[in-house]
């Protein structure tokens, strides 16, 4: 994993609640057996007018010229709900998104993003509303996310603080190898397995 410290980019407003992982990456693209190459299928059904993905839907936010190069996504409640597919963060990352800001995220999606160098920022509903207003008013607005200080700053100089679990923060800052981290405690895993062999032999 790449370390994540701070990021500045154009923010795209996706004004919709309950964006599910089927909407982020539909099932017909889940058949790839690699982690890359999903970006061109991101938001496929919202983004294209045809099944083949050859005709852009001009009304979809990412097809508007001012948001073509956006790397920060502003969304509504319960972003990433539904299926556990990690293809969703792979597609978001592959497209170029590094930061997603919303009032709430689905549980599994949140964990999946942390493992894929995407910073998810939870802000209060009224804060989200104010950012929507700002980026809708000024074309090309950018947002800066600073993980160390846990702040989001808009190009209009409005700053918002956000909470993040210290471990998730540390993982992103260091680009942690999760398996490597756990394996430091291999002796504890061994001890657990020895104990369970005696106490619940039917489980082993």
């Amino acid at each position: 994993m790449e370390p994540f410290t701070k990021h500045t980019g154009i923010a795209a407003p996706l004004d919709r609640a309950n964006i599910d992982t089927d909407a982020i990456i539909p099932k017909q693209f889940l058949r790839l057996i690699k982690r890359t190459g999903f970006g061109k299928h991101l938001f496929h059904e919202l983004r294209y007018l045809d099944y083949e993905g050859t005709k852009d839907n001009p009304d979809f936010v990412l097809n508007k010229p001012e948001y073509k190069n956006s790397t920060v996504l502003l969304a509504r409640d319960n972003f990433g709900c539904g299926s556990s597919r990690e293809h969703a963060p792979w597609a978001l990352y592959d497209y170029g998104f590094r930061v997603i800001i919303a009032p709430s995220f689905a549980d599994i999606f949140y964990n999946n993003c942390i493992k894929n160098d995407i910073l998810l920022v939870r802000l209060k509903e009224e804060e989200i509303n104010s950012i929507f207003n700002e980026i809708n008013a000024i074309v090309g607005s950018t947002i800066n996310a600073d993980l160390e200080s846990q702040t989001i700053t808009t190009s209009g100089q409005n700053t918002f603080s956000f909470d993040i679990h210290p471990f998730a923060k540390d993982c992103l800052l260091k680009g942690l190898d999760h398996i490597g981290w756990t394996l430091q405690f291999n002796d504890k895993i061994n001890a657990y397995e020895e104990k369970i062999k005696k106490e619940q032999p039917w489980v082993t």
């Binding site: 556990s84 597919r85 990690e86 963060p89 599994i108 964990n111 999946n112 493992k115 894929n116 999760h178 398996i179 756990t182 394996l183 291999n186 895993i189």
Partner: peptide, 13 residues
């Protein structure tokens, strides 16, 4: 349910 990175984590550990 877990994501694929976690699937790998469980397979390994």
């Amino acid at each position: 349910g877990i994501g694929t990175s976690e699937v790998e984590h469980v397979l390994a550990t």
